[in-house]
């Protein structure tokens, strides 16, 4: 099938649709697709603002590194996108290592703020753009962040969605597991089962993820591409088509 848009443009449009009616989003280090999705959502949701790491005009923090975490605790940070090395069927994410964490086969960066923010930000999107049994696993090798808390623990947020390059899952806090929300164009439920290391609920009718319409693509290739170029010039050039194309 001949597509009119890049994989990245599709993911930007799809992710943007998950950001809901919150007002404030922070996009972290090395996160061009979440940043672009935030910029797109500003046009779809009046009052929404995305802070972009690496763009001085979009970094409204004046009080050092603590401030975003305090804002999250205060309920003033609505939306965040987390990636990682692995995610499992209980929405535990791993940003630390593969193998025994004391003597790992492969060490990665570390958990950053995930363990705390997992309880504070109402609309958390997990983003794993290389969907495979290596990244979507039965059980993560290290829990950088987990929604599993003792009874009565304070919680004003948590993971809501898991977006991959093949499909979209919705997290159900009642069951603590994922349900398939939609499959991307050209994908099948069977193919997604094959590529996923954990069990998930499949409803009777699984819709196909909506493709971005012409107006959305024009917006991505116009204002979003321009705004994104401050922090992610190379990505904007390589992964988003020219305006008018």
């Amino acid at each position: 099938m001949m597509r009119e848009y890049t994989k990245e443009e599709f993911l930007i449009a799809t992710m943007s649709g998950l950001f809901g009616d919150g007002r404030f989003m922070v996009s972290g280090v090395n996160s061009p697709i979440p940043a672009a999705a935030g910029l797109l959502h500003e046009h779809q949701q009046p009052g929404f603002f995305v802070s972009i790491h690496g763009d001085p005009n979009r970094t409204p923090f004046v009080d050092g590194g603590v401030e975003p975490f305090d804002m999250a605790a205060q309920g003033r940070l609505d939306t965040f996108v987390f990636g990682g090395v692995q995610v499992d069927g209980q929405a535990n994410i791993n940003l630390v290592s593969i193998g025994d964490p004391k003597r790992p086969k492969k060490r990665f960066t570390g958990s950053f703020g995930a363990a705390g923010l997992y309880y504070l930000i109402p609309n958390i999107v997990l983003f794993f753009p290389s969907h495979s049994r290596r990244s979507l696993v039965q059980k993560v090798d290290f829990r950088s962040a987990s929604p599993q808390a003792p009874e009565g623990a304070f919680r004003q947020g948590g993971p809501k969605w898991l977006l991959t390059d093949l499909c979209l899952f919705r997290f159900d806090p009642a069951t603590g597991g994922f349900e398939l929300a939609s499959v991307h164009p050209g994908q099948t439920v069977a193919a997604i089962r094959d590529a996923t290391g954990f069990d998930f609920v499949v409803p009777k009718d699984v819709p196909t993820t909506a493709e971005p319409d012409a107006a959305t693509l024009a917006r991505i290739r116009g204002d979003v591409r321009d705004g994104l170029s401050v922090a992610y010039a190379q990505f904007a050039k390589d992964c988003i088509k020219q305006p008018g194309s």
């Binding site: 975490f69 958990s111 363990a115």
Partner: peptide, 24 residues
């Protein structure tokens, strides 16, 4: 951050939101 803030105040510890269920 909470550990440094406790240190600045010479308090023995500081509480932090979330972190439950993590391997840390």
């Amino acid at each position: 951050h909470a550990g440094f803030i406790a240190g600045e105040k010479r308090l023995p510890f500081m509480a932090v939101r979330g972190v439950f269920g993590s391997d840390m």
